[in-house]
Design a protein around this nucleic acid. Structure first.
Lengths: 247, 247
DNA sequence: AAATATTTGTCCGTATGTATT
DNA sequence: TAATACATACGGACAAATATT
């Protein structure tokens, strides 16, 4: 009777084996395990290493191919699609396209929607308004070289920034949209970074696979007089972006 | 014929429905959806909201009770175990215990191990050494009020900081350990933040559940003369910590 | 140039876990 | 509790593309 190889994978975690293995392969890639532009071991070898059937490994590889992490070629092997993470600077003067200028040819932002609503306590506090004050909620998305980088929800004082969404849509730039409202310059006052699993909205906006991670940055921008002009929650695709804190 | 409620849950993701729902409830708690010390809606209401059977919701709740996120009381309801996220400051002068002083009574660091190794290109570049130069690799872990907060791998120039691990273990503080090596003050030169799934080492050190997320901060500390003295990779439990960037 | 080995791609069937009714 | 449907995982066999000898 053949003794079955000890499986290091848990079967009762509610996470399918192929997904656990995909995560481990992704981590191995991030750790540089397979070298520069590296090639994965054959499916049979991976199956043995993880103590699972070859088909299960194939499921993991298929998911990573779908994600764009791997590329499989019949008869040749499976290869790592090397794609360096964009480094998104967080500084006192943080502007989307300037920060990524050297890292991507094509940077652009899109307006997804604009609605008018009443400020909840969190938004009101960040913008220095009374709770319930009218604010504009603006949904945007940005991409670099055709790959979604981030999606954001921003709140503006509706009294001061009427038509901000329209201005962003026409100029394609928050900086230029501010100019139209008499804000010549602005600064990042504070940034808080956390991370969580992408929700359904993030998955759609950023074209992510289920289970993906987003970096969440809560930020307050202020004008030259120090008055808050924008509160935003930006979700970055964690496998495509890192945040560089400049000090 | 009854029309079935549109399910927002995907069945082909490799993540069991009960786990997806557990993740969404966890997110809802983080977003403050159920209020202060809040009570969850009845299982039947949750089942309807998520478009699944009550049995499935029960599976999700059972997992969250196991995690310590929820507390279920027969006949009364299911309640959120209150735990606020620690806000970990990242600034030019970043020190572990000072930053958390107001947020946790009991802050402590532990030395997990120290080894001597040759610097790889990444470590060498960060510390301004030649690749292959001898460095100390120190593994540490920190907790606040008995809950693991972060674990870190740090590298020091072995020539300048011999016995650094021992000094950290005895003093329980990196700052004090530096003093023993003639470094009276130091600064954070750069910090890069990313996020990924916790690997097996992180899971053990931080007592996390499989699939958990860690915030990864790569940092370089320099002495008053601007010479690099430490390169570190710190993994924070993303569901317990947020990083506050001070500017 | 030809034969062989290696590696990915596809098909079959079966057993078990998950979710609904 | 039981019946049903689907997704997951395993095992084997073979085809197709590529690499090696």
């Amino acid at each position: 009777m053949a003794v079955k190889a000890a499986t290091t994978m848990d079967r009762r975690t509610g996470v399918a084996l192929w997904r656990q293995i995909a995560d481990r392969i992704r981590q191995g890639i991030a750790a540089g395990e397979f070298g520069e532009g590296g090639r994965l071991p054959p499916e049979t070898a991976l199956a043995e290493r993880f103590g699972v059937n070859r088909h299960t490994v194939r499921g993991a590889i298929a998911a990573l191919v779908q994600e764009g992490v791997l590329r499989a070629e019949q008869g040749r092997g499976t290869f790592v699609e090397r794609r360096k993470r964009l480094s998104y600077p967080i500084a006192r003067r943080t502007r989307f396209s300037e920060g990524l200028r050297d890292q991507a040819q094509d940077r652009r932002g899109h307006l997804l929607g604009e609605t008018r609503e009443d400020a909840d306590t969190r938004v009101a506090e960040a913008l220095g308004l009374q709770p319930g004050a009218p604010v504009l909620r603006v949904e945007t998305m940005s991409e670099a070289d055709g790959r979604p980088v981030s999606c954001a929800t921003s709140w503006f004082d509706a009294a001061r920034f009427a038509g901000m969404g329209e201005a962003i849509a026409e100029t394609g730039s928050v900086t230029l949209a501010y100019r139209r409202h008499g804000v010549e310059d602005y600064f990042r006052q504070s940034t808080t970074v956390s991370a969580r699993h992408a929700d359904v909205g993030d998955l759609a906006a950023l074209k992510l696979a289920p289970g993906a991670i987003v970096l969440v940055a809560l930020a307050v921008n202020v004008d030259v007089e120090g008055r808050p002009i924008q509160f935003s929650e930006t979700r970055f695709a964690a496998d495509r972006v890192e945040l560089a804190v400049a000090e």
